[in-house]
Design a binder for these strands. Structure first.
Lengths: 123, 123
DNA sequence: CTGCATCCTAAATGATACTG
DNA sequence: CAGTATCATTTAGGATGCAG
């Protein structure tokens, strides 16, 4: 019989894992959370998300765009102006990762306390 | 004046980013989601989460334990038996990542359609 | 300004062998 | 069984230069 209870995401090489990794990637999370507030231009986003390189930002945005989470709007002007915004699908994803990010920020003290206890128990 | 509107997570080397990366890491997500259902033994978890190596599972569990998300219960028997379970803090985190994972699974068809459209538009 | 292409380094991950 | 240690490999990431 088939094991219907095992989620797809626990299988190797399944499509959902790849998507999940785009959404939860180091820069993917931060980009989605930023775009949830408003749309951003490329270099604006680069300044907003601290520490992201040009290369990684472009790469992250392309993956999110291809997955249908982000909409790229390149205006035919000189100098180039490209705006990035969330699609409706992207808003759903961004809502969840942003909520998670905010939860983590609230729990930083708890985690730091847990680490202190863990490290002391080791010593 | 200080920019109070910029979340901590957008800053480089902030504590919340590190925590977020533990929680959203490739194996962290899957381990948390698994432990949300029930507690697991080490090798049981290894079989449940497809493709995870022994080394990465141990490393992931240690990071989650140190952060206060996972409780490790090593029973003094031979052969060794170690159970892993979520702490209350871990349950909160796991609830969110698991919800995200399930959302992604439901949206796989939408993403695949978006990719097909994207790839075709390129060609 | 918004990228892409290239090269290079650092970090994550995997495979294997080994220990209590 | 539940890991640790080591080595090899893969991948992520950063720096730079250049084009539209």
């Amino acid at each position: 019989m088939t094991e219907l209870l095992i989620p797809d995401v626990n299988r190797v090489n399944c499509p959902s894992r790849v998507i999940l990794e785009h959404v939860t990637s180091r820069w993917g999370v931060l980009v989605l959370a930023a775009l949830l507030e408003r749309s951003y231009r490329f270099s604006e986003l680069r300044r907003h998300v601290g520490g992201v390189s040009e290369k990684m930002l472009a790469q992250t945005l392309q993956a999110l765009e291809r997955d249908g989470f982000v909409l790229r709007d390149a205006k035919p002007v000189i100098p180039p102006r490209v705006d990035y915004a969330l699609t409706p699908l992207g808003e759903e994803a961004a809502g969840q990762v942003s909520s998670l990010a905010r939860w983590v920020e609230r729990r930083v003290p708890d985690v730091q306390a847990a680490r202190a206890a863990y490290d002391e128990a080791k010593a």
